[in-house]
């Protein structure tokens, strides 16, 4: 039951030609595919290189200090004789600024996301979303500068403090750096809750707010959780703000208004004067390892939540 007439000599020749051309084409296409695959590995390669170099330049410090003393050591006097390399105060400072910043940024970020996705009219949404994006685009050095020259004197005067450069100020600035992250990722999650779910709830007589609280937020909770964790990750890794605003004192904070020295600030401030491949240099790289592990944990948890508790919605059907 051949559909095409004339399977003559010509056609056979033509088909041979096709097959020959086809093989060359397939080889070329495969080469292109492999080329793109190799380039796509660039990101993970870079990540791998970051790990390799952090460890290469950071591990030598543990010949001088045990891991335990490094992480839980109370004293960071890297330039003393003999030096002390204990970063416990730096870790606590990082955790403290991140926690306080989260207390501010999580409610603000999530509520703004709810406002944008559920309450705001289309016009306002189109106006406010770019504002949130612009907030995200503000260079950290500018926020740090602002915290230093505007917020610090203000805090110092209002609360009658010895210095306005402290944990609270840094947390406030960090909060405004992580709000955009929290807000925009949550907003995506909330906005992609299927309309059918929402309508079903409204049709049963629930008010809009009840629908938000009982249907929309539960349905998008994994996206919101991811957003929060990524926001916190951004706060703990942020450098310029804590370098300029946190006050720089190496002590475990006991009050909201204590000056502190989070890990990134310590690295940024001291690397320039640390002798190349001296103990101080190694210790700063090792601090980088600790910081990197913290953010890696945040990101892996966020990734895990995003994948495991995949959002309820049309996409899963």
């Amino acid at each position: 039951m051949m559909s095409f007439a004339g399977t003559g000599q010509n056609q056979i020749k033509e088909m041979d030609e096709f097959a020959r051309k086809g093989r060359g084409r397939q080889r070329r296409e495969r080469a292109i595919r492999i080329f793109f695959f190799c380039i796509a590995l660039a990101s993970i390669t870079t990540l791998g290189l970051i790990v390799v170099f952090l460890f290469m330049e950071g591990l030598p410090i543990f010949a001088k200090v045990s891991v335990n003393d490094f992480i839980f050591g109370r004293y960071w006097y890297p330039t003393d004789e003999p030096p002390d390399f204990g970063i416990f105060a730096l870790i606590m400072a990082s955790l403290a600024v991140t926690t306080v910043a989260s207390v501010i940024s999580i409610p603000l970020g999530v509520l703004t996301a709810l406002y944008l996705a559920e309450v705001a009219s289309a016009r306002i949404r189109e106006l406010v979303k770019p504002i949130v994006e612009l907030l995200a685009a503000l260079p950290s050095v500018v926020i740090g500068f602002f915290g230093m020259v505007v917020v610090a004197p203000f805090l110092q005067e209002v609360f009658d403090l010895p210095t306005g450069l402290n944990l609270f100020n840094a947390s406030l600035m960090l909060a405004f750096m992580s709000i955009p992250t929290i807000c925009s990722i949550s907003e995506d999650a909330i906005f992609s809750v299927p309309t059918e779910l929402k309508e079903a709830s409204l049709a049963l007589g629930a008010t809009h707010l009840e629908t938000i609280v009982r249907v929309i937020v539960p349905a998008s909770i994994s996206g919101i959780a991811t957003a929060i964790i990524l926001g916190m990750s951004r706060a703990i890794g942020e450098t310029m703000v804590v370098l300029m605003v946190a006050g720089g004192a190496t002590l475990i904070p006991s009050s909201l208004f204590d000056p502190v020295r989070p890990m990134p600030a310590s690295i940024a401030a001291e690397m320039a004067e640390a002798p190349f491949r001296g103990d101080h240099y190694y210790a700063l790289f090792a601090t980088g390892i600790v910081l990197f592990i913290f953010t890696l944990l945040f990101n892996v948890v966020a990734d895990h939540i995003a994948h495991k508790y995949r959002q309820v919605g049309a996409a899963t059907l």
Partner: peptide
């Protein structure tokens, strides 16, 4: 197609 199986692994899909 013309007696040739188009799902044959040697077939050039583009052609």
């Amino acid at each position: 197609l013309d007696g040739q199986d188009i799902y044959d692994p040697n077939v050039d899909v583009v052609g």
